[in-house]
Write a protein that binds this DNA or RNA. Structure first.
Lengths: 200, 200, 200, 200
DNA sequence: CATGAATGAGTGTTCATTCAT
DNA sequence: TATGAATGAACACTCATTCAT
């Protein structure tokens, strides 16, 4: 590994370290309350050091969001890829993958789907990135309708309804983890079945 | 009315004025960006005056939350009361009332169900208040099962699933109002029908 | 004196105190290096206290400039008023008053006539205020020409030349007080005489 | 050219590049707002690279000042050299050269004669350098007196008065370029004539 | 010779809050 | 009850400079 490569890797690592700290703080303190100082303290650096890696606080959040989108999309795709059988299985797999992403990365899920609003007024993200996940869902729904395993209906309408139910279970579990949920896994299974049945 | 009573009423009015200003600012500026100064400016008082009515910023938010719960519960109850026929109608009415509350009071809905987490770490709210709405839903579900219009099943499980789907559609519409939703009302109707069908 | 009047006066005093500190610091540290913190330290207040009296740093400087203009104009007028005899005396009196203002208020003189440039790009001051002094000079020159004690010539040209020579002696004495000037007062007298002779 | 000599030249070139960038920035952004970062950016080097050529920001400014003095003196000398006839012509030539220097190098003029004060508190410059220009003027004045074209008088007094008037016209034109000056060139000619007449 | 990393001090400003009146 | 004055902490960010490489 050349010195150059070494350095490059270190930069990446440092950037990652910063982002990870930012994500964690975001989760615990709320987006607006994460300050450069706090991030710096968490990684044991001076506040100014961060500016060697990110031009501004906004830049950190931008990168952080893009990370989230990337993980989100990959999670969905991987989930679908694993079950290549029939259209319905693939659709179910995507629904489960969505929920699973949320529960595995609650911080990113919040960032992307829950606290989104005020962020996006300032930070312009490639719109495609945000909707690619939904597009994937739409395709799977259309596929399932074509194969006759889902009642023919307006694809958009059905997809949006499914997204809504997905978001509901994911967001609630993340936001109120201490609510007396009757068996996490059972609830999720039930919800997915109910969703499919509801639009069948 | 005694002087004492009179004063009490004035205090209430002032408190209400403060809270209303806070809610509006919360809606327009985002929760974290609402400051005592801004609230005070909005109601044309000095920042310090507010401290005569609320001990701290937190106290305002607490009261504000309680107001929200109150409106939420009343909305649900009113929705149900209007349709006193059969259990299924009553259940559907409650589902619609829930969504309607969210869309009519997006600020309160966000406060109670979306941005909840960080607030609750500091502000301890009577847990009952938060769950009364869910209890109402549970009762209606049980009722519907008893009347045979809903498949007998674990009441808790079904109720939680329904809440999730309710929250999903409501939160998404609030958080992403500019997403290309296919006909707001149509989507809501579809979602409610799918929810019922899903758990039937 | 009513409480109100008392308070008003205190506010004025505090404002004055702030401005005086600012002027002094400006003189010793240079305009760009005067910070709110330094001003605050000088008057033994917290940096934030200043914001109760001035909305911003710019606001302080604006006020400070306006003070300077006011003193400048008054100095000129007073100087002229004292010698009401003939036009030439009045003109000479104004020239002496100009220099005297500069030497009595070197800080303000610098602010208005020396370091002006970058300030005024941001702070917009009523243009009239800046040029009233020059207008007064112009009037006195015209008067002197009319009375025949000054050679008829372009009033603007002569006035501008006189202003230049006035500024030169004033600015040099302020900027280089330790240069080996041959007798301050003698030099000033000589300069004024030379100026008059030069345009006669 | 030996390697050593070569290196020396490269160092000089780099130093010159830095100084030129600094001068330009000083002119456009104002002296206090020129930072090492900005200088480095302008010449496409890293901020730290500069420290190989100048020990500090102050050092740059010192060199910059010395450059200015050098140009100033040369300008004066050249101006005088061109008109070698009689003493009065030579004196006038020097006056015009002074003003011309100021208008051709407003940035240097400001540095040397206008904003001088605060710099000099920190940067100690060989006093001779600063006063050589004035000495030249003094010599020309003495010469003119000796030749009888200027009234015999205290050489110092007359020279200082002349310098003042020179500085006045130059500084005003630089500091207030947008003031409604009645024909730049005409004003300068008038001023020089008035100055000579004033001390004749 | 040149650079990226890092830092402590400093910038103007906002904030929630306390206190005397 | 209401307010103006005041403050310490915090904010994002810039700066001149040092150091190891």
């Amino acid at each position: 590994m050349s010195t150059n490569e070494r350095r490059k890797k270190e930069i990446k690592e440092m950037k990652q370290e910063i982002i990870e700290a930012a994500v964690q703080l975001f989760l615990s303190d709320g987006y607006e309350n994460v300050s450069m100082r706090k991030i710096a303290k968490k990684i044991q650096y001076s506040p100014t050091a961060i500016y060697n890696y990110f031009a501004s606080k906004e830049e950190i959040l931008k990168q952080l969001l893009m990370n989230g989108y990337s993980i989100f999309l990959n999670s969905l795709k991987e989930g679908v890829a694993k079950s290549e059988e029939d259209a319905l299985s693939r659709l179910k797999a995507s629904l489960n993958a969505y929920i699973h992403f949320g529960l595995s990365h609650p911080d990113y899920y919040r960032l992307i789907f829950i606290e989104n609003l005020h962020l996006l007024q300032k930070i312009i993200i490639d719109e495609d990135d945000r909707t690619k996940g939904f597009q994937l869902l739409t395709e799977l729904v259309a596929e399932a309708m074509n194969e006759g395993v889902l009642k023919k209906n307006e694809v958009q309408l059905v997809s949006q309804s499914l997204w809504a139910s997905l978001h509901g279970i994911t967001a609630l579990l993340i936001t109120f983890p201490d609510f007396g949920w009757s068996d996490f896994d059972g609830l999720i299974r039930f919800q997915v079945e109910a969703m499919i049945k509801g639009v069948s």
